[in-house]
């Protein structure tokens, strides 16, 4: 089981993106690149892309961070969560652009408005998600990892783990209930 801590805290990276938005701070961007660049490359590689494409998409994702930094709202999402959503959308969008290279990468936005009554700051929420993930039983953690990291539909995960589809689905449901309970738990 991985350790859910890095050298920077979640808040640091949010501040970093805010600095990029406000001051076009290249040094902060270089620091962000040093952290997220190699991880994004790993993320795209695990989705089955070649090293070259993985590196291209990594650059595109971070270029989007540079350009759209003013749309980042630290109340709405933590930095890694925001960057994860950008990377996910780029990998889905890739097929469209492969077919028609003139098309630009779409910047999807707006689907994740904060919910009324959501009191937790997202940095704090992200911290709780990490703690909750670390506490997840191994079988649930495995399906979560496969579906997030390797972009596999549940039907395919079921095949690979030789489990009935219903079992995979119920593990995802259980993981979700557990995560939600841990994240919403009052301190």
């Amino acid at each position: 089981m991985a350790v859910w801590k890095g050298s920077h805290t979640v808040t640091d990276w949010s501040d970093c993106i805010v600095a990029i938005a406000q001051r076009r701070d290249r040094q902060q961007f270089a620091a962000l690149f040093a952290h997220f660049g190699p991880r994004l490359k790993g993320f795209f590689l695990r989705r089955g892309l070649t090293a070259g494409t993985a590196e291209d998409l990594m650059q595109e994702a971070l270029l989007m961070v540079w350009r759209k930094a003013d749309r980042f709202d630290p109340q709405r999402a933590g930095a890694s969560t925001w960057i994860f959503a950008i990377a996910r959308n780029l990998s889905i969008d890739l097929k469209r652009r492969e077919r028609d290279p003139g098309l630009l990468a779409e910047f999807y936005d707006g689907a994740d408005q904060p919910t009324p009554g959501e009191l937790l700051l997202s940095a704090e929420r992200d911290g709780r998600i990490r703690a909750a993930l670390a506490a997840l039983p191994a079988d649930q953690a495995e399906v979560v990892r496969l579906s997030f990291f390797e972009e596999r539909p549940h039907s395919q995960i079921a095949e690979e783990l030789r489990l009935p589809l219903g079992t995979v689905k119920s593990r995802v449901r259980l993981a979700m209930m557990r995560l939600r309970a841990l994240v919403e738990e009052r301190q």
Binding site: A2, V3, W4, G6, F36, P38, R39, L40, K41, G42, F43, L45, R46, A54, R76, A77, G78, A79, S80, T81, W82, I83, F84, A85, A87, R88, A111, D112, T115, S122, R125, D126, I129, R130, L133, V144, R145, F148, F149, M176, L179, R180, V183
Partner: peptide
Amino acid sequence: VSLWEGVGGALLDETAPE
């Protein structure tokens, strides 16, 4: 969905750097 995206973010942070 935003909860699950938070999970994605946490997993991204934990990816072994390439």
